[in-house]
C-alpha cells in the first residue's frame, strides 16, 4: 500500500477517533463572553458620554478600546486572563482583548531573555502579524483611495 493512501486513511480515522469539543457549549461560551466584553465596552462608552456629551463617537470608540486593553493587560499580569480565555475561547480572542493579551503575555513570558531580544523583540511574536497585516492593509486602502481621488472617481 502506498504511503499517501495509508496516511489519508489514517488521518480520516484519527479525525473520527478524536474526541470532539461540544459545539453547543463552545459556541455558547464564545457568544456569552464575547458579547459580555462588548456590552462592558458599551457601558464604558455610555458613562464617558454622560460626562462628556459632546465627545466625538470615534473618540469614544477609541477610549473604549483603551479601557478594555488596559484591563486585559492587568488581568494578564495577575494571571487571571488565561482562565477566562479557557472558558470563553474565541469570545476573548476576537475582541481587542485577545490582541492586548497576545502582546502582554509574550512580553511577560520572554522578558527572561533580556529587555532587548527578549521582551522588546518577542512581545510581537503573536501580535506582530496582526500589526504588520493591519498597517499593510491600511496603506493599500489609503493609496488606492488617494489614486481614485486623483482620477476623480470618488
Amino acid at each position: 500500500m502506498n504511503n499517501e493512501k495509508r496516511n489519508q486513511n489514517y488521518l480520516k480515522y484519527v479525525e473520527q477517533k478524536s474526541p470532539k469539543a461540544s459545539w453547543f457549549k463552545s459556541l455558547f461560551h464564545a457568544f456569552l463572553i464575547g458579547g459580555a466584553i462588548c456590552c462592558f465596552g458599551q457601558m464604558c462608552g455610555d458613562i464617558i458620554k454622560s460626562y462628556f456629551p459632546l465627545m466625538d463617537i470615534l473618540l469614544i470608540g477609541t477610549w473604549i478600546n483603551v479601557i478594555v486593553i488596559t484591563l486585559t493587560i492587568l488581568l494578564t499580569a495577575f494571571g487571571v486572563f488565561d482562565k477566562i480565555a479557557r472558558f470563553g475561547g474565541a469570545g476573548t480572542i476576537i475582541p481587542i482583548s485577545g490582541f492586548a493579551n497576545s502582546i502582554s503575555s509574550c512580553a511577560i513570558e520572554f522578558k527572561k531573555e533580556g529587555l532587548v531580544f527578549g521582551l522588546g523583540a518577542k512581545m510581537f511574536y503573536i501580535a506582530g502579524p496582526v500589526i504588520a497585516n493591519g498597517v499593510a492593509y491600511s496603506l493599500i486602502v489609503g493609496i488606492v483611495y488617494y489614486i481614485l481621488q486623483i482620477l476623480a472617481v470618488v
Binding site: 488565561d82 480565555a85 513570558e109
Partner: peptide, 10 residues
C-alpha cells in the same frame, strides 16, 4: 506563552 489565553484542544 503561559499567560496567553486560548483554549486547549480536547
Amino acid at each position: 506563552p503561559l499567560e496567553f489565553g486560548n483554549q486547549r484542544q480536547t
